[in-house]
């Protein structure tokens, strides 16, 4: 516990240096902020619109109406963006660092390498993406006329946290594979997205085997599929108990812990590189 506090303190000591610098660098290029936001909106926005058009035509997918499907999608995106804001360094940037031997640096600092990697890649700048994600979710909820009260709001916040932890944990897990195998990591970003897409759509439409997969093996169904049913007053829990709708946070904690453990253990397998 003391050790965790030590690493946290160090983390908050050094994060401003990196973050301040990255924001400064971004703002040095005029319009970068605008263009970046535009790309984000274009990237996810077109997906959003395509989904909108498809659901418009077919009316309902597996019994899910248009904006319900959009809610699933925007929750997935928001939680993913949050996970990436924090974990870009130790996840998407890690395989390259391992391959090039640049991970050396993180191992000779008086702070846990995971905390160091997060700090070194952290940029307050990406909070803008999170805000855009929040707008997506709010819009879907608004169009669905979900009546918000305190309980639902707390539930929503916990769900988003849990979803971010689930995705973050899986991202760490996938990246950490690079510690354990030599050569290319087969669990790429594309693979992650493909898997996750299974949970962006109503899971009902998939065969049972996939329903099991996204519930037990890679629990992406907890990101939005199960919990959104509480918000929408649905009752579509496949062959599972309705309790699943309240589990995103605990499952998130478990998945993230497993991710961190596998990652931290992987450090000892790191081979560096000859120069």
């Amino acid at each position: 516990m003391v050790a965790v506090l030590y690493h946290l303190k160090k983390f908050f000591d050094i994060v401003p240096i990196f973050s301040h610098n990255q924001i400064k660098a971004k703002l040095e290029y005029r319009g970068a902020l605008l263009i970046d936001s535009l790309f984000y909106i274009l990237g996810y926005g077109t997906q959003f619109i395509i989904l909108y058009l498809i659901t418009d035509k077919f009316d309902a997918i597996g019994g899910w109406r248009q904006y319900e499907v959009l809610l699933l999608y925007s929750m997935t995106i928001l939680t993913y963006t949050i996970a990436c804001t924090l974990l870009r360094g130790p996840s998407s940037q890690l395989p390259e660092k391992i391959k090039e031997g640049h991970f050396d640096q993180s191992l000779i600092k008086p702070i846990h390498p995971l905390a160091y990697e997060i700090a070194a890649s952290f940029s307050g700048y990406f909070l803008i993406h999170d805000i855009l994600g929040i707008i997506f979710v709010s819009y879907s909820l608004y169009m669905l006329h979900v009546e918000m009260n305190l309980i639902k709001f707390i539930f929503l916040v916990c769900t988003i946290l849990g979803g971010a932890m689930i995705q973050g944990g899986v991202l760490l897990l996938f990246a950490a594979v690079s510690f354990y195998i030599l050569g290319e990591n087969p669990l790429t970003y594309g693979f992650f997205i493909a898997l996750r897409q299974l949970s962006e759509s109503p899971v009902t439409i998939f065969p049972r085997i996939i329903q099991y997969l996204v519930t037990f093996i890679i629990p992406f169904a907890f990101i939005c599929f199960y919990p959104s049913q509480y918000l929408l007053g649905k009752n579509d829990f496949l062959m599972f108990h309705p309790i699943v709708q309240f589990l995103p946070l605990p499952i998130g904690v478990i998945v993230l812990s497993v991710g961190c453990m596998v990652w931290s253990h992987g450090i000892n397998r790191y081979q560096s590189s000859g120069n």
Partner: peptide, 15 residues
């Protein structure tokens, strides 16, 4: 991306 002096400051806080 950091100026040298910022790297120094980073180490000041780390250590």
């Amino acid at each position: 991306d950091l100026p040298v002096i910022d790297s120094f400051m980073l180490h000041k806080r780390l250590y």
